[in-house]
Write a protein that binds this DNA or RNA. Structure first.
Lengths: 194, 194
DNA sequence: GTCTATAGGCTGATAGAC
DNA sequence: GTCTATCAGCCTATAGAC
């Protein structure tokens, strides 16, 4: 709904995100990005400072939006189960909104340089800690099976949510609501009828 | 228990796998590998043909071992639930056995070149198809909830199993048996009570 | 099998004309 | 803001002495 047009800087970042997703950060050259922009590589530097600034900008933007999403959920008046459901929704939203750049959180973040690398890891670690605290609250309330290891559960859930971007539209096209429902079932209730 | 010593070629591949895991394939130079070997980069070429041959060798080895593991499970006299459990065990075994090179299956395989890229993708696709067929059999038998989308379930389970290498010893050190039990619970039965 | 030397190409980034 | 020209550095890989 923005009246303002996208800046050329923004378009460069989007094209770069697409290429980083497809080929990886190191395998994507400034010339690749320039070609996608119909420009010469040297001209990119009128809009961005460096290749690694593009990566930092894309990743820090996502990390901060995940963090603020987590804070909202933590401060809301919700049951712990509802908080878990909201976290699934958050990941689905972010995946649909940042379909290319979100791919960077699975591996390419290692190419961040200081101070962004530390900033990024701090945000990620805090996020995981908050996620774990909700799982702990659920277990204390008897909502999660006592025998279940929560660290393993956390990383299992996050593995699925982080990789969502790569396969959510691979076979069955489903809308956002159905996707969230399925993920809540699969991740929390399990698939077996028992 | 091999009496024969490891070939220098084998050691190079192992050191390379360690570095590929940590920094990525493209960000790892032949000089990096040579340093880890206490050699000069040029000397590596007495034992290996090229950098991309190292990647191909590591990845094709893993892909083929997953494929033969799948074939064994498919041909065994097991219930479908037992087959799912065996698949979890297969991934745990492979993760412990190939703790570095298994990391390549999450992202670095895109740097394979033909004909290995096609070979790799064919093996992976066949593996996923076989995995899905077991899930379908379970659902037809009423063992998996009818409302569950099996493609989503497959990719969710595989996301966790593929990323296992990165977090299985991050917090709680657990032995192989407990790890498998936990994964079978979390991935198949879910974490919630009721 | 190891080394030194080097080829040949690509990289990110800058300088300066227009 | 775009371009051409170019730099300095790194990359994989090879040649050839020992």
């Amino acid at each position: 709904m923005d009246i303002q047009e996208k800046s050329k800087q923004q378009i460069i970042k989007e094209k770069a995100a697409f290429l980083f997703r497809k080929k990886g950060y190191n395998a994507t050259s400034m010339q690749d990005i320039a070609e996608a922009m119909d420009m010469k590589a040297a001209s990119l530097y009128n809009h961005i400072n460096s290749k690694k600034d593009i990566l930092s900008s894309l990743l820090m933007n996502i990390a901060q939006e995940f963090s603020s999403g987590m804070q909202e959920i933590l401060q809301a008046s919700l049951t712990n189960i509802e908080k878990l459901n909201q976290l699934v929704s958050l990941h689905v939203s972010m995946t649909l909104k940042y379909s290319d750049s979100i791919s960077l959180i699975t591996g390419e973040w290692v190419h961040l340089e200081e101070p962004f690398l530390s900033d990024y890891k701090n945000l990620r670690d805090a996020y995981e800690k908050d996620f774990l605290s909700i799982l702990k609250d659920c277990q204390q309330q008897g909502l999660i099976n006592d025998a279940v290891n929560l660290n393993l559960s956390l990383y299992s859930i996050l593995s699925t949510l982080h990789w969502l971007y790569s396969w959510y539209n691979k076979n069955d096209k489903m809308n956002r609501i159905e996707l969230e429902l399925q993920l809540k079932q699969i991740l929390l209730k399990g698939i077996l009828t028992k």
